[in-house]
């Protein structure tokens, strides 16, 4: 059954004063390279294992590469980074923690499933706005490691449901700072989502499970900021996929908020139909890859001035699914703006 919580409580929206996005770096897998956004990623790898002997070590190396790539690209050094925060989909978030062990830098491990990347930006922005100079936010996922943890062995001949999604392989890292000498995008607001469960139990339909959470958070953000969808150049969700994105649009329009052509979903935009991902990508890598490549470039080229990024996460585990429980979901929203005038 669906969990009945009182959703008349308002979600608060946080305002950030000084949170600058210095730069981002994305490392994507081979299937992502062949996808629609292939040329945007900073680095794409030929092999899922990234030259390591297991998929898990390969994923770890993607995280470490994204982290170091973002630090270098931002023009800062390792010692300038005051904290690394992030997470991934594996049990005990090993990919992020193991990738971080090579750095003598404070570390916070986070988990909100596929919404972890946006969660890390929400927390990272708080840190640079109050206490720290530079924070690295890193997140991602890996098809081959996630598949065996959540579903079946790779070589098992199983029938794939037409509304299923494909876990994206890759990692993205963003460097946040409390100051910037050159024009760059800023995180100005955030709305932290709550756990929403509408009773969906089908783990092949996570888009449908997460859509109500995304709707809840978006409506709260629009309400708190007295804005409407047209006020943004882009409203982007993480990994609702094609079906989840459609349901999301349906849910918001029933509440009187109609999304226009400025809405996109990272997971639904990553692959071509002939790549047989059905409803598109899923996983923390979707938002981490798309935001740190194409979207950051568009922001810094002044093509996007104001946008919302909504990270969506399905918070179940294989154990809870086997025990017959429904899928609780979460969505966090950040507002990113680029105002060149600030530096004039």
């Amino acid at each position: 059954m669906a969990y009945m919580v009182n959703d008349s409580y308002d979600l608060p929206t946080i305002n950030y004063v000084n949170c600058y996005i210095l730069d981002g770096y994305s490392v994507a897998g081979p299937k992502e390279r062949m996808g629609k956004l292939g040329e945007h990623y900073d680095l794409t790898v030929d092999n899922d294992k990234f030259g390591e002997d297991t998929f898990e070590k390969g994923e770890r190396k993607m995280f470490a590469t994204a982290l170091q790539g973002a630090i270098n690209k931002s023009g800062v050094s390792d010692s300038d980074i005051n904290a690394i925060i992030g997470g991934d989909l594996l049990n005990q978030i090993v990919s992020t923690s193991f990738a971080t062990r090579g750095y003598p830098i404070p570390y916070l491990g986070l988990y909100n499933a596929c919404g972890t990347f946006v969660e890390s930006l929400v927390v990272g922005a708080m840190l640079v706005d109050n206490y720290m100079q530079h924070v690295a936010c890193v997140s991602g996922s890996h098809f081959s490691t996630a598949e065996r943890q959540y579903r079946f062995p790779l070589e098992l001949g199983v029938f794939r449901s037409p509304h299923s999604q494909w876990t994206a392989t890759g990692a993205g890292c963003t460097i946040l700072s409390n100051h910037s000498a050159h024009p760059c995008a800023r995180i100005t607001k955030a709305t932290i989502g709550r756990v929403v469960d509408y009773g969906i139990k089908d783990i092949n339909n996570m888009g449908a499970a997460m859509a109500p959470a995304a709707c809840d958070t978006l409506l709260a953000h629009l309400n708190n900021t007295s804005t409407k969808p047209d006020d943004y150049d882009l409203i982007m969700t993480g990994d609702l996929g094609k079906l989840g994105g459609y349901i999301f649009g349906d849910l918001t329009s029933k509440k009187g908020v109609v999304l226009g052509d400025n809405y996109m979903d990272c997971g639904a935009s990553m692959y071509y139909p002939e790549q047989r991902t059905y409803m598109g990508g899923s996983g923390a890598a979707c938002s981490a890859l798309v935001f740190n490549s194409m979207i950051l470039n568009q922001l810094h080229n002044n093509e996007i001035k104001k946008m919302l990024l909504i990270g969506t996460g399905a918070l179940m585990s294989p154990t809870t699914s086997f025990q017959g429980d429904s899928i609780p979901s979460i969505a966090h929203c950040i507002q990113v703006e680029y105002e060149e005038e600030l530096w004039n």
């Binding site: 669906a2 009945m4 449901s161 037409p162 509304h163 509408y198 969906i200 079906l243 459609y246 349901i247």
Partner: peptide, 20 residues
Amino acid sequence: YAQISKSNYKSYVFETSPKS
């Protein structure tokens, strides 16, 4: 669907999802 709520969400999703 005039309204989508927690009570009719499952049937709404079932009807909206593509079938094999």
